[in-house]
Design a protein around this nucleic acid. Structure first.
Length: 496
RNA sequence: GGCGAAGUGGCCGAGUGGUUAGGCAGAGGUCUGCAAAACCUUGUACAGCGGUUCGAGUCCGCUCUUCGCCUCCA
């Protein structure tokens, strides 16, 4: 069974084979660190995290590079020429470096909580100025770039394929709607900056052969991708909004220098809307992850994201997340039930054996879920397979109250592999058994066992007043009791 | 204006030429001392209008609507 990936370059699903057998080189556009991460970051990085996890699960060594953009892109508002990080630094009356460090840490905090595995290499743009200057020099030398007044521009006309990713290939047509050209030092309106001379008061600047200034917006990805992964990489991921101009510019810069394909597979994830509307700074509807995590468990957000396909727009709403939360709880509960279910060795009576074997036949589920993930990382389908599976697990446990050892083992393995290792939506066994954290989960477990024993005894003596009192009071304390065939169990009720 | 995506049952959200997506919510039932949970049953949805086809949410055309990008943005 082969993996097929939708390649934005060509807009079709293509069979994926890495350039070098066994090793996948992958670059994902990272965040600009001038503010806390929001829901859009979550969607992007959770999606690509599953890509990495699935490739690794499939046996590849994945070399995953994700940049940190700490050289701010230019802002478009009144503070002309000032970049985002400089601006934020001025607002916060501090050093740009401090800003980018602060938000870099904040970013990883949030990603960690979302169970996003960290990249192998996380290079930052400010730390790779020489590499970027070097790339510009090569572009000038080969006639693809020119310097004017301390600025350097890439000459779009020198790269006939410019725009091939986004489909914006006809540069003349693109210009036709534009206003009569303001006298520009650029040779062509579509030419883009590789190096900008720093204006008065610009905080982040470096010396270069052309001026004291800073690199253009698109350069860092090309420079760092080629430095750490080579001239041609297997996968480059990013948000759809970056197709043009960012990714098209990357292609132009890189391929002009190397003469080789820059990226074999371009993957673009789609955007988040909030209650049906684009999430945008101007609309003031950015959903900050730190705020969101106060309301919902980060793993619920992760699950919510993976319930839709990475190439689809995802609409965020309170109701939708709540629905996901209920669904995920069911999955977690079933896993817990499975892990704690009594098992027995030996054989089942014939009719039970056939039933259990048929219903918990994991091979079939294994095949289905592999097919889904190999089909352009179709996580919604993968999740639906997991739900079918847990329904069968519950069904068998409802009927028998116990599982044959081998069945239990393969069922647990199935969940831990796909829901856990690949999708990252399963809480660890320890996390399920105890209340999280440092407050002595183990002790609480033991106290709960005492309470549950007492209640079981009360029920046995038909002292329902007492047993209900225990149940009701625990519920008030946020602990829910469930009576199943395998005995009573408890779980923390979700906050909402 | 240019480039692109999409309109699916109460909600979210897959799929795609003929067979159940899945989750949440709802209804009925089983189980239970009661409840919760779980399980079983239940929903004949694919924007509208034409066309292709033995057969279309699924392909084609038109219409309507929504959304994204073209300016920093995941």
């Amino acid at each position: 069974m082969s993996l097929f990936i939708y390649n934005s370059l060509g807009r079709t699903k293509e069979k994926f084979e890495p350039l070098h057998p066994g090793i996948v080189t992958m670059y994902v556009c990272g965040p600009t660190v001038y503010g806390h991460a929001h829901l859009g970051h979550a969607k992007s990085y959770v999606s690509f995290d599953v890509v990495v996890r699935w490739l690794r699960h499939s046996g590849y060594r994945v070399k995953h590079v994700q940049n940190i953009t700490d050289v701010g892109h230019l802002t478009d508002d009144a503070d002309e020429g000032e970049d985002k990080i400089s601006k934020q630094a001025r607002l916060e009356k501090t050093d740009p470096m401090e800003i980018s460090q602060f938000y870099t840490r904040s970013f990883y905090e949030d990603m960690d909580r979302l169970e996003v595995q960290r990249p192998n290499i996380a290079p930052n743009a400010a730390g790779h100025i020489p590499e970027q200057i070097d790339l510009i020099e090569q572009l000038i030398k080969t006639g693809h770039a020119y310097a004017v007044n301390g600025n350097v521009y890439f000459s779009v006309e020198s790269f006939p394929e410019y725009g091939k990713l986004s489909g914006r290939t006809d540069q003349e047509a693109l210009q036709s709607g534009a206003r009569v050209e303001v006298r520009s030092e650029k040779r062509h309106l579509s030419d883009f900056a590789l190096w900008k001379k720093a204006e008065e008061g610009h905080l982040m600047k470096w010396s270069s052969p052309w001026s004291i200034g800073y690199p253009g917006w698109h350069l860092e990805c090309s420079a760092m991708s080629m430095k750490y992964l080579g001239e041609t990489i297997d996968i480059h991921g990013g948000g759809m909004e970056n197709k043009f101009p960012h990714h098209d510019c990357e292609i132009a810069q890189s391929e002009s220098v190397t003469g080789k394909p820059y990226v074999r597979f371009w993957m673009h994830n789609n955007m988040v809307t909030v209650n049906g509307i684009k999430m945008g700074k101007s609309l003031k509807n950015f959903v900050n992850l730190k705020d969101l995590f106060n309301i919902f468990d980060p793993i619920v957000i992760r699950f919510f994201i993976l319930q839709s396909h990475y190439r689809s727009q995802l609409d965020f709403s309170d109701g939708a997340i709540r629905a996901s939360q209920s669904g995920l709880e069911k999955l977690q509960e079933t896993y817990k039930r499975l892990v704690t279910a009594p098992t027995y060795s030996g054989h089942l009576p014939y009719e039970e054996l056939t039933k259990v074997k048929l219903t918990l036949q994991t091979l079939e589920f294994d095949k289905k879920i592999k097919e889904a993930l190999n089909d352009d990382f179709n996580t919604p389908i993968a999740i639906s397979v997991i739900f079918e599976f847990i329904k069968n697990v519950n069904s068998v446990l409802d009927e028998h109250g116990k599982l044959q050892e081998q069945t239990a083992y393969s069922a647990i393995t199935f969940l831990e592999t796909y829901a856990g290792e690949v999708l990252g939506i399963l809480k660890s066994r320890e996390g399920l058994m105890a209340t999280e954290g440092r407050y002595g989960g183990k002790i609480i477990d033991e106290v709960m066992n005492v309470l549950l024993d007492l209640r079981a005894e009360a029920r046995k003596n038909k002292d329902f007043a007492l047993s209900d009192k225990i149940r009701d009071q625990l519920l008030e304390a946020g602990i829910e009791i469930k009576d199943t065939k395998e005995g009573a169990s408890w779980s923390k009720k979700s906050a909402t």
